[in-house]
Amino acid sequence: FQLEIAAIVHMAGSCLWVGYEYPEFQGQQFILEKGDYACYQAWSGNSSYRTEHMLSFRPIKCAKHSDSKITLYECEDFMGSKFEMCEDYPSLQAMGWCSKEVPSIKVNSGAWVGYQFPGYRGYQYIYERDRHQGEYRCYNEYGTQAHTNQIQSMRRIQQ
């Protein structure tokens, strides 16, 4: 099975993929960039969640790294204070976000991955302009495994 994952990622060329723990794009998400994934630690990285298998995959459409832009909102449905980002942030709180939570998100361009904890650790959530029209009105739209709106670090997905 690990060879299949490596083959998918290598066949993609410059394309990036998201792998899901279960069929039909369900369960924990894992970003797969070009490279080798010899064991589950290679795709789960600093995640506090470990799974030894991925059962469905789909490509991610990215913008140029310099064109990526995302807006974080203080409340669900794009309400409250907002903060626009164009850079990677290993700690949202260090950049001025006053909460450990991000209740709603709009992706203006590109694709992003949000992490549950600072330093790009914990659960991963993929946010794309080309999915949901780039609108994530509440945390349960972040993915089927999302049980909280806790997002503490974010980075652009490179093309």
Rank of each mutant, 00 (worst) to 15 (best):
V18L: 02
S109Q: 13
Q28G: 11
L16N: 12
G80L: 03
P103C: 02
E76G: 03
R129N: 06
V9G: 10
Y37E: 01
G80V: 06
S47A: 12
L3T: 14
P90N: 06
S81I: 12
Y49V: 13
H53V: 10
A146G: 05
E135C: 04
F30R: 06
S153G: 00
C75K: 13
G114I: 00
A42G: 01
I157F: 03
Q159Y: 13
I157V: 08
F57R: 06
D67G: 10
Q29N: 09
Y40M: 06
H65D: 15
R50V: 04
L92H: 01
T148K: 13
A38Q: 13
G134P: 04
Y120N: 09
D77E: 12
G122L: 08
P23K: 14
S104Y: 04
I8F: 07
T71W: 02
H147K: 14
Y142S: 01
T148V: 05
E74N: 07
K34E: 10
A94D: 07
Y123S: 15
W43C: 02
M85D: 01
Q152N: 07
E21L: 00
I5M: 11
H65N: 15
S109K: 13
E128Q: 12
L16Q: 10
Y49Q: 09
Y49K: 13
C98Y: 08
C98E: 08
Q152Y: 07
F57Y: 04
Y136Q: 02
R50C: 14
A42N: 08
T51F: 02
I151F: 01
P23T: 08
Q159R: 14
G27T: 05
H65Y: 15
